[in-house]
Design a protein around this nucleic acid. Structure first.
Lengths: 341, 341
DNA sequence: CAAATAAGATAAACCGGTTTATCTTATTTG
DNA sequence: CAAATAAGATAAACCGGTTTATCTTATTTG
C-alpha cells in the first residue's frame, strides 16, 4: 500500500526521524516554527500516513477491543454492537466481533484469539461455561466486561438490564389487568443469575399482591428442544394460566407460533407479554406488548466501562444496571370472567 | 498483557531468536529434532504467544479487512456481515465494521481510516457519492469489492443480487395473478444501477406480457421525506394500481404504515410484494409476500472475492450475481373484478 | 564575560518479531 | 586424506515507528 514512511518525510524536510515523530505526536515545543512548516509541507507533498502497526508495536496498545456475542444477527444484539462501535469509533478505537452461537468451545477459542491479538479489552455476553477461563484472562491483565448475562461467580465488571425490576413491572402490569395465574416461561435459570433475577422480580410482584406462587406456572423452554410442556397442554391444565410472560424473544416467537397453530387467540384466550423488543411488532395480527431493553445504550455503556478499565487498571469493578420499559400494545387484556373464577 | 517474548523462549531453549522464529513458522528442516523439542517445551513452559503486531509489521499485512455498510443493525445487513465474518474467521482474518448511515462524509472518513489502518482490503456498500475517492484508493493498491449497490462508473469487483431477474419475477408473479396496473415504488434510480436494474426487470416483465408501461405507476420515495405522492392519493387516482411492488424494506414498511392508517386492506383492496425479507412476517396481520435476497451468501461471497483479490493483485475484476427468490405469503391476490375493468 | 540555562535537534536504543547472509562442524566425495 | 557439501545454527539487518539520553548553539544570568 502506501510506501511513504517517516524517514522519507524526514529526508524531504531535512530533519531527523525523531523530530518528525515529535511533530506527529503533537510535541511542537521541541522544534522551531520553521521546522514545523517544513515537516508539514513534506507530509503533505508525500501524502504520508503513519503506520499504526509500527506505532502500536511500541505503544503495546492495539486500540482495538473484542466483542464476543452469540450472534450479531439478533435484533437486540446488533443494536448493542452498534452502541459499542459508535463509542469506540468516537475515541479512535475499533471493535472486533466474534460470534459464538453460544458454543462454549467457540467462545473459548474467541477469547484466546482476542488474547493473542492483544486487544486492549473484551466485552462478552458469556455462556457461563467458561468462567474459569475468563478469570484466568482477567488475571493475566486483560480487562473484561460482561454484559447481559450474569453468572454466579462472575461478579466482575458487568452491565445489564435491571431484569428484576423489569420482570416485576411486567408481572405487576398483568396483575393490574386482573391476572392471577401468570405463566412465567423461561430457560433454566440455575447458575444464570440474570435469568434468576427475572424470576425474583416475577415472584416479588406476586407476593406484593398477595398472589400465591404456583410452581406449575413456571414453565421451561430450551433452545434445542423447545417447550417442556406444550403451550396447548399448559392452557388446558386444571388451573390454567390467563397470561404468559416469556423471558426472551426466541421464547416469545416460538410461543406465538404454537398459539397460532392451535388457533388460540391473543388476548381473548390468553394474554402475552414478552421480554425483548419485537421487530415490526406494529404490523402483527396482534401487536405484542413487551418489556423492552435498551440494547444500544447497553452497548455504549459497556464500551465506556471497558475503556475506563483499560485506562485505569486498578479500578474497582462495577455493575451497572439499565432500566427497561414496557411498550404497551395489544396482547394484554383483562382475563375472561369465566376463567378467572 | 503477556510479556513473554520470543527472546525469552530462545534463552530458555538455549537457541537463537532466529531458530525460534523458524520453528514458529514451521520451517522445521532448519533444525534438529532435539532443538524442536527444546523449543516446544520452552514455549509451553512460558505460555508464549507470538505478538501478531510485530509479525504484521514485517509482513506488511494486517490480516484484517474493512466492511463499510449503512447500518449493521439492518436485518439483511447484519446477515451479510455475519457472512463476511464467518468467511474471514475461517481463514484467520478479522473484519472491521464501519457504519455510515449512508452519510457520504462518514463514508469518506471510514475509507480513509481503513486505509490508514492498512487493512488488506475493503468491502463496501457505497453511497455512490465517493466514486472518485474509491477509485483513488484502488489505484493506490487497496483491493475493494462493492456489494449490493452498483453505481454507474463503478464497474469493478462487485457482488450483488440479480436485481433485474428478481424484479422481473416479482412483476410477472403479480401479472399472473391478473394484475395489469402494478405500482413500482422506488427511490430515485438515476446513477444507481442496482435500482435501475430493478426497473428494467419490472419493465421487461410488463413488456413480455404486452402490458403498456404507465409512467404514473412509477412512484418515488425518499428516505428523509417519504413518498412523493401519498399511497392514498395513488390509489384514488384515475387509473389506480391494483398492486404495489416496493423496492426495499424501508419502503415496504412505510407503505404498510400508510395503508394501515388509511384502513386500506391487503390484499383485498390492493396487493403488495416487497423487496427484501421481512423479519417475523409470519406473525403479521397480513403476512407479506416478498422477493428475498440472500444476504448471508452475499457476505460470504464478497469476502471470498475480496480475499482472491488480496492474494492476487493482478486478478481481473468480476461481477457476481446471486439469485433471489419469492417467498409467497398472503399479501398478493387477484385484483377485484370491478377494479380490473 | 564566564558559567548556567534554554531551545532546537539528533543518535541510538527500543518495540517484538522475520529473513538473509554467514558461520561451524560433521559428513560425504573422489 | 584434502576438498566439497550438508546440517544446524546464529548474527545482523530489517519492518516503521517512538523515546530517551545527549549534543550544539544561542541566550540568559550573576
Amino acid at each position: 500500500m502506501a510506501k511513504v514512511k517517516l524517514i522519507d518525510v524526514a529526508q524531504l524536510a531535512s530533519v531527523s526521524k525523531s523530530t518528525v515523530s515529535q511533530y506527529l505526536n503533537g510535541r511542537f515545543d521541541y522544534m522551531s516554527k520553521e521546522t514545523q512548516v517544513r515537516i508539514r509541507a513534506a507530509i503533505k507533498e508525500l501524502d504520508y500516513v503513519p503506520n499504526p502497526i509500527a506505532r502500536n508495536l511500541k505503544a503495546d496498545k492495539t486500540k482495538t477491543i473484542g466483542v464476543i456475542v452469540r450472534d450479531i444477527t439478533g435484533f437486540d444484539t446488533s443494536r448493542t454492537i452498534r452502541g459499542v462501535d459508535d463509542y469506540c469509533k468516537a475515541i479512535d478505537y475499533n471493535a472486533l466481533i466474534y460470534n459464538t452461537d453460544f458454543d462454549p468451545d467457540i467462545e473459548a477459542k474467541s477469547l484466546e484469539a482476542l488474547y493473542q491479538l492483544r486487544v486492549d479489552g473484551i466485552i462478552i455476553a458469556s455462556s457461563g461455561k467458561n468462567n474459569q477461563l475468563i478469570s484466568d484472562y482477567i488475571k493475566k491483565g486483560m480487562p473484561i466486561v460482561h454484559f447481559q448475562l450474569e453468572h454466579d461467580g462472575s461478579e466482575k465488571n458487568l452491565i445489564l438490564s435491571d431484569y428484576r425490576q423489569a420482570a416485576f413491572d411486567a408481572t405487576e402490569y398483568l396483575i393490574q389487568l386482573g391476572h392471577k395465574r401468570i405463566c412465567f416461561v423461561t430457560q433454566d435459570f440455575k447458575n444464570v443469575k440474570s435469568r434468576n433475577e427475572r424470576y425474583i422480580g416475577y415472584a416479588s410482584a406476586l407476593e406484593k399482591h398477595h398472589i400465591p406462587l404456583d410452581k406449575n406456572l413456571i414453565q421451561y423452554w430450551q433452545r434445542e428442544t423447545g417447550f417442556e410442556h406444550s403451550p396447548k397442554s399448559i392452557l388446558s391444565a386444571s388451573a390454567a394460566p390467563t397470561a404468559f410472560f416469556t423471558q426472551h424473544l426466541a421464547i416469545t416467537t416460538e410461543l406465538l407460533t404454537h398459539l397460532n397453530q392451535e388457533k388460540i387467540s391473543i388476548p381473548d384466550d390468553v394474554s402475552l407479554i414478552g421480554f425483548d423488543e419485537i421487530p415490526m411488532a406494529e404490523f402483527f395480527k396482534v401487536p405484542i406488548t413487551v418489556v423492552k431493553q435498551e440494547p444500544y445504550i447497553i452497548g455504549k455503556e459497556a464500551a465506556k466501562l471497558l475503556l475506563e478499565n483499560i485506562n485505569d487498571k486498578n479500578r474497582h469493578s462495577q455493575k451497572i444496571m439499565i432500566s427497561c420499559s414496557i411498550t404497551q400494545r395489544q396482547s394484554c387484556a383483562s382475563p375472561r370472567e369465566d376463567i378467572s373464577l
